[in-house]
């Protein structure tokens, strides 16, 4: 109970918001973006924050999920759920085959490889127009139904996205406190020591890469159905960078850090609308400033500060008790 207290509070807030404000633009429109971005940031954090492996190409898997849903339902007439399954299969195979050679690399080599992967996939979306519809994308996805209930309003989509996001968060929290999570942290802390403790580091990294890609893939499919159409620009290199920024902004390695980072970065454009052309500039400035002055991220920095204060208070109490 105590382990997941934060999660229960968070779930409560997420699910009560649309009941209180069912017609609020920020809940049912911006909220959808927030929810999907949280799922993506949390999944990227598994790889970047837990295992310490940077990825500048996460948007590729998000895009592959979205395009699979669009292509298999519209071009080949499959049922949406079958299409989602095909998407998962494709992403599973691709990420599994690529994971070992890619994750053998470290630091900027890894950054380059994941970035290259993201760019290649994006170029494929733009160029292979017989399959992907080219720069215009594909529109007219069928409505997704769950047990015969069509998901056809923004409010219904809110709940679907929210449940998916909460599952992602829960899985991520579970992994943190487990043998698998510790193995990932060990890889992050010292790969050589991890190997000496019997951890097959290549396997561990490969598994989390695939896992994180699969979550992004499902997010992509849901996103495509909700939007009703897909186009390449949602899955570009810049979106990958944005996801990295979310994770870093909240604090690498913390699930709720990723949640906070994704939340801030998703509503930021709404708040910056008044600044219009300044948006890019401000975005870059935030990214730099956070990394220079708060390399642990906003959420983690605040959490550490609170823990530190609590520690000092307990020290004081000990001192008082002994004197």
């Amino acid at each position: 109970m105590k382990r997941l207290l934060g999660f229960y509070i968070f779930s409560f807030i997420t699910l009560v918001l649309p009941i209180l404000f069912p017609d609020n633009y920020y809940v049912t429109v911006v909220g959808l973006t927030v929810l999907i971005n949280i799922s993506l940031a949390v999944s990227l954090n598994l790889l970047m924050g837990y295992a310490g492996q940077i990825s500048l190409g996460h948007a590729a898997f998000f895009g592959l999920g979205a395009y699979s849903s669009a292509i298999f339902t519209i071009k080949y007439g499959f049922n949406p759920w079958t299409a989602i399954f095909f998407g998962l299969l494709i992403v599973f195979l691709l990420s599994y085959i690529l994971s070992r050679p890619i994750l053998k690399l470290k630091g900027h080599y890894l950054a380059m490889a994941t970035l290259g992967l993201g760019i290649i996939v994006h170029i494929f979306f733009v160029q292979a127009d017989e399959i992907t519809g080219g720069p215009d994308g594909i529109s007219g996805l069928p409505t997704l139904s769950i047990f015969g209930f069509p998901i056809d309003t923004d409010l219904k989509w809110y709940f679907i996205f929210a449940i998916f996001m909460l599952i992602t968060v829960l899985l991520s929290l579970n992994i943190a406190d487990s043998r698998a999570g510790r193995a990932l942290s060990a890889v992050h802390g010292s790969e050589i020591a991890a190997q000496m403790m019997g951890i097959d580091t290549a396997k561990v990294k490969s598994h989390i890469f695939v896992f994180s890609a699969l979550i992004a893939c499902i997010a992509g499919s849901l996103f495509a159905h909700q939007q009703n159409f897909v186009s390449p620009e949602s899955f570009s290199f810049f979106f990958s960078i944005e996801l990295v920024t979310m994770v870093v902004l909240g604090g690498l390695g913390s699930t709720f850090g990723a949640v906070v980072g994704a939340f801030i970065l998703s509503i930021l454009p709404e708040l910056l609308i008044v600044f219009e052309d300044f948006e890019v500039l401000i975005f870059g400035a935030i990214l730099m400033t956070i990394m220079i002055f708060l390399p642990d991220g906003l959420f983690v920095a605040i959490k550490n500060k609170i823990a530190f204060l609590a520690f000092k208070r307990s020290q004081k109490e000990v001192a008082n008790a002994t004197s």
């Binding site: 300044f278 500039l281 401000i282 990394m291």
Partner: peptide, 25 residues
């Protein structure tokens, strides 16, 4: 950025690149 790791310098320079692009815009 004194404590910067490889990952953080990558992100700092990406931030700088976005910032400069924004300024140019």
């Amino acid at each position: 950025a004194k404590r910067a790791t490889v990952v953080s310098t990558i992100i700092i320079t990406i931030g700088a690149s976005i910032f400069l692009r924004g300024a140019a815009l």
